[in-house]
C-alpha cells in the first residue's frame, strides 16, 4: 500500500490491464446485459485509491495474493445499512 498526496485531481481506480481485460469494461454499455463474474475463476485485478488508518493509500489487489480477501461494494457512504 503506497501513500499518496491528496490533491484536487480526482484519483481514479483502475482495472489492471493484464488480468482485467479492459475490453470487458467497454462491452458493458447502457441497456446491455450486465456481465457477472464467475465463481471458481480468477478475480479481476485492480488498483484503487483508499482511505486507511488516517492516510490516503493506493490498494492493489495483487498484493493480497496469499490472503483471503473480502471485497465489498455498497451504494454509497452514509447509506444506512
Amino acid at each position: 500500500m503506497k501513500e499518496f498526496e491528496a490533491g484536487c485531481q480526482r484519483p481514479k481506480g483502475q482495472p489492471k490491464p493484464a488480468a482485467a481485460e479492459p475490453a470487458v469494461v467497454q462491452e458493458v454499455q447502457k441497456g446491455e446485459e450486465r456481465k457477472m463474474i464467475q465463481v471458481g475463476k480468477p478475480a479481476p485485478m485492480f488498483s484503487a485509491p483508499a482511505f486507511y488508518q488516517g492516510k490516503f493509500v493506493e490498494v492493489d489487489l495483487e498484493e493480497y495474493k496469499g490472503d483471503w480477501v473480502m471485497l465489498c461494494f455498497y451504494p454509497g457512504d452514509f447509506t444506512f445499512v
Binding site: 463474474i37 465463481v39 480468477p42 495483487e62 490472503d67 483471503w68 461494494f73
Partner: peptide
Amino acid sequence: LYGVYDEESGTETRGRFLIDPDGIV
C-alpha cells in the same frame, strides 16, 4: 468488472466477493 455497477443510478449494489489466497473468486 465485477458486475455490480448500476448504470442507471451511477452507484454500486451491495456486492460481496470472497477471494482465496490464489486470487480465485
